[in-house]
Amino acid sequence: MAVSTRRQLSLRPSPFVATMLLVLALFVVALLRSGSMSITGQALLTGLIAGGVYSLLAMGLSLIFGVLDIVNFAHGSFLAIGLFVTYEVVHQTGANPYVALPVAIVVLFVLGALLQLLVLNRTMGSSLESQLLITLGLSLLISNALLLFFGGDPLSANLHNDPGVHIFGAVANLSRVIAFVGALVLALLLYVLLEKTSFGRAIRAVAANRQGAGLVGIDVRMIYAVTFGLGTACAGAAGMFIAPFTTITPTAGDQFNILAFVVVVMGGLGNIMGALVSGLIVGLVEQLGGVAIAGQSPLLSVFILFLLILLIRPQGIFGAKSS
């Protein structure tokens, strides 16, 4: 079978280009509606920065789906645990919130790996509904456990000094800039782990063919546990990064749960790099949409985009089929 290496000319834009055109259109509408470059520029910066955190969170979710075929509805709750870990570290030691980053990563990794080993490994290969119900139940369990231990009053883990940083005329708090840069650095580290290390190769092998992975001697259950742990560690790190500018409550993760799903579907289920790029797009759409369709929840434009993608490109804008 001869495969042509030359691209066929096509007048239909690629789904990715179409999405970027949509973002551009939103930018123009936002500019016209607000009549102010500084407001629109501010939305652009805020969106991009929020998107970096969505990327990290969604990469974890997409990794779990790609390797384990588990739709993890507890992902937002793991982010909430990350928030409370940060709160605890700050309030027990009085330290800077960023000291909590390694703590949140380790705690959430261990928690995720243990959950997979002790609970979810028993459900591997069972129907999608049963896993969905288990992770949904887990999410309720986590929220209520947090409620039991910390109460329902909103908590905070602010920086002592959180100055505004000027970037191209727009302003963002230092904590948000750190969240953006930190999330992207961790996202990149995850990518390097998966693509460049032999352990990452084994994870990809399990995603591609779990029986084949067993045949070459990979301990598939161990890979499952580590992968779930890596996924929840992403949520934990995302939780830590947003803790300094987020109201910490037991249900604070729920909103991010939904956003992460939008990002994962947009990037293509199981497509890790797709999730990275889509996270930034969702952040931009959220903020620009908030200006363009003023007076509504910024999430409105995100859900309109989500519906469009589900209707037109359910496999995501990068065209990669789920593994």
Partner: peptide
């Protein structure tokens, strides 16, 4: 195995290297 159970999206070399896991 009968259905070979290769790692389809990965390269020939990656498949071989994984064989030596």
């Amino acid at each position: 195995s009968e259905d070979r159970d290769l790692f389809g999206p990965m390269t020939v070399e990656e498949n071989l290297v994984l064989g030596a896991w």
